[in-house]
Measured scan of single mutants.
Amino acid sequence: MLDDRARMEAAKKEKVEQILAEFQLQEEDLKKVMRRMQKEMDRGLRLETHEEASVKMLPTYVRSTPEGSEVGDFLSLDLGGTNFRVMLVKVGEGEEGQWSVKTKHQMYSIPEDAMTGTAEMLFDYISECISDFLDKHQMKHKKLPLGFTFSFPVRHEDIDKGILLNWTKGFKASGAEGNNVVGLLRDAIKRRGDFEMDVVAMVNDTVATMISCYYEDHQCEVGMIVGTGCNACYMEEMQNVELVEGDEGRMCVNTEWGAFGDSGELDEFLLEYDRLVDESSANPGQQLYEKLIGGKYMGELVRLVLLRLVDENLLFHGEASEQLRTRGAFETRFVSQVESDTGDRKQIYNILSTLGLRPSTTDCDIVRRACESVSTRAAHMCSAGLAGVINRMRESRSEDVMRITVGVDGSVYKLHPSFKERFHASVRRLTPSCEITFIESEEGSGRGAALVSAVACKKACMLGQ
């Protein structure tokens, strides 16, 4: 009897593995994704193909990295998701002549009506938060230079001027797309009239992360975010950046690689679950690469896999709870928690219980395998993109072996128990001629924006502006 049951459990697990095998990517698959990513990057950089390229390769006008001589107080704003952060950054000489960066910050959550109302409502709310922060720190009387981390696709015309191309991540505030974001912020500050600010720089969160990590390690020339969304930036040779005049030196390019796949480059790798996630998203047909990796989508992918296993009578005796059938019910943090389970399955059992399920031991094991399959594919897909960037940098610099540091931020990278190990191992397999160091950014977005502002202020002083 026991043997029969054991055989049935083994057969069930084997069927589960057959279904989950769809998520496995072979090294040849990853090399294919990497080569296609490089081709799209090239198209994004070139003037004649930029418009139709899915990977936009947006110039950021960040050319210099901090040298350690900029000092002063800077205000930093960070808008990239449902939370908005205001930070005071003091850049100065530390002990023994070292450079020191001290920060104080406060988080504000953005109400739904500000995210989806008008641009005026959104930026009025942001300036209200700045006003509140300055009151708390008794700094209303000071006109501070301000660095703005704005983590949406922007076409820069200068370091302090950028046109919002399109909202992502659930934002829909009308009247912002096609307009200068810094102008919208300046107008809102003017409307309030109770404080003055000098907006000197606007950067993407990947750029802010790279600059913040450069402060720790001067070989950091790539910034990457794996959180709600997924994106990367890197220092490109100016001669390859056709959208900006000049051939000397390097400029940081914001790849906006989340949109890779929007022209069909990933079609052969998309599964039924991916198509369902895409169809029910706020932007169907867009940001397809990001939807395979980002935390906004990972939990939902797992939920759809679990429903398939229920329908195949391989999980929960073929019956799903009402909660499990509800879109968004299986949160991405559950994926991390399930994979963090120590082996007694308590954590998995508790999560499934909150979803109205009474799982068996085998159910718990199957749910864990589903989570591992989805998150491992995410790590491997992400590795193909980064390997594409790094191999490109090595080739354009004609280096036999390139040493490089990548600064990384984002909740999936930082909080998932195995993502970074799987990701690092896969990147290294795909970049055999590179020695890569990964560092995690601390308060990256805010500190990085302030350091970019410090560079901009120093330049302005040198130019006598």
Rank of each mutant, 00 (worst) to 15 (best):
M37Y: 03
A379G: 07
T326D: 10
T209W: 02
D267W: 07
V86G: 02
S151R: 11
S64W: 15
N391Y: 11
K32H: 12
M8E: 11
L430I: 07
M197L: 08
M402E: 04
S131L: 09
D262L: 13
V55N: 08
L146M: 10
D42G: 09
S418F: 08
L301P: 00
K12T: 07
E395Y: 14
G407R: 03
S151E: 15
V226Y: 03
T82M: 06
G299P: 07
K190N: 12
G295F: 15
D42E: 09
M57A: 04
R429C: 12
R186V: 07
D262Y: 15
Q26M: 15
R327W: 10
I130L: 14
D42K: 15
R63S: 00
L122A: 06
K15G: 13
Q286I: 13
V33C: 06
I366D: 03
Y273K: 03
P111N: 05
F316Y: 13
T149L: 13
L309H: 07
K140E: 07
E112I: 08
Y273T: 14
L463G: 12
G464L: 13
S321E: 10
G258V: 15
L309A: 03
Y349V: 03
V241C: 02
K104C: 11
K143Y: 04
G385N: 12
V91N: 01
I439G: 06
K296H: 07
H141Q: 12
L324N: 02
S373C: 08
E372N: 05
M298K: 05
K136G: 11
T405D: 01
F74V: 02
D278I: 03
M115I: 13
T116H: 13
R369P: 00
V367M: 02
F171H: 15
T82G: 09
R36C: 05
G385C: 06
L25F: 13
E14V: 10
F74S: 00
C382L: 10
K15L: 14
N231L: 09
M8T: 12
V33R: 01
N283A: 14
I130N: 02
G318D: 10
P153F: 09
T116R: 12
D363F: 01
I110Y: 11
V277L: 11
A6T: 15
F260M: 08
D42I: 09
F269C: 02
G178Y: 15
G229N: 15
E70W: 04
T437F: 10
